[in-house]
Amino acid sequence: MKKLILVNGLAALLVLLAITFFSNCATSNVAMNKSGAQLWGENCVRCHNTPSPETFSDVEWDVAVMHMRVRANLTDEEAKKITDFLKTAN
């Protein structure tokens, strides 16, 4: 029974990996048209208060956003837009 659960779980994860690989084709216009400011407001607050852009310098934001990209599973485009916004607004 547990092996069945494991196999099914792994199969599901493999399918999801495949979906993820090809998902760029499925990105909607709504998602594509989101600004860096909007993505910053939507994503940060899911876990913690939204940080002020003035908190870090441009160089520091490069590192901080990459950290959050890995930890919060942000997409490549989201991370780039958020970084650009923070560097412009700080």
């Binding site: 792994l10 994860l13 999801l16 990996l17 979906i19 993820t20 998902s23 760029n24 499925a26 990105t27 909607s28 709504v30 998602a31 890995v70 919060a72 599973n73 942000l74 997409t75 989201e78």
Partner: peptide, 17 residues
């Protein structure tokens, strides 16, 4: 670990294995 996130239309998924 392998992880990531992606859009599915207006929805999003993220995964970790």
């Amino acid at each position: 670990e392998l992880s990531g996130g992606a859009y599915l239309g207006n929805s999003k998924i993220n995964y970790s294995a």
